[in-house]
Simulated scan of single mutants.
Amino acid sequence: MIYILAWRGGIQPMRIILAGVAVAAFLGAGISALMVFYSDRIHGALMFMNGGISGRSWPHVWMILPYTIGGLLITLPMAEKMNILVLGDDVARGLGLNVEWVRLGMTAVAAFLAASAVSVVGLLGFVGLIVPHSVRLMIGSDYKYLFPGSALFGAAVVMYSDTFARTAFSPVEIPVGVVMAVLGAPFFLYLLRRD
Rank of each mutant, 00 (worst) to 15 (best):
D90S: 11
D162G: 09
F188Y: 04
S119F: 06
L85A: 05
F112G: 01
L87T: 07
G20K: 02
L34K: 12
I64W: 02
A165W: 00
I53T: 14
S54Y: 14
P175I: 11
Y190Q: 01
M47Y: 10
T75K: 06
H133D: 05
M49C: 12
D40F: 14
A114N: 11
R103D: 05
L85D: 00
Y38H: 13
V172M: 14
G44K: 13
V86L: 09
R103K: 15
L97P: 01
G94R: 04
Q12A: 14
L183C: 10
I2G: 01
F126P: 03
A156D: 05
I64N: 04
A25H: 09
A168E: 04
F169R: 06
R194C: 11
G52C: 03
S150M: 02
V99H: 05
A181G: 08
L124F: 01
W7C: 07
L104C: 07
Y38G: 14
A114Y: 01
L27C: 14
M82A: 12
R136K: 10
F112H: 05
V36R: 10
V121C: 10
L76C: 12
M78D: 03
Y160A: 10
R136Q: 07
I69A: 10
S161F: 04
R93L: 08
G55R: 09
S32D: 14
L34R: 14
W7P: 00
Y67R: 04
M138W: 12
F26V: 13
V178W: 03
P77G: 00
L5Y: 07
W7R: 06
F48T: 07
V99R: 00
S119I: 02
R194W: 14
A6W: 01
L85W: 00
D40C: 07
L146V: 03
L85M: 05
P148E: 11
F26Y: 12
S134W: 13
G30P: 03
L192N: 08
V21K: 09
M1C: 11
K81N: 08
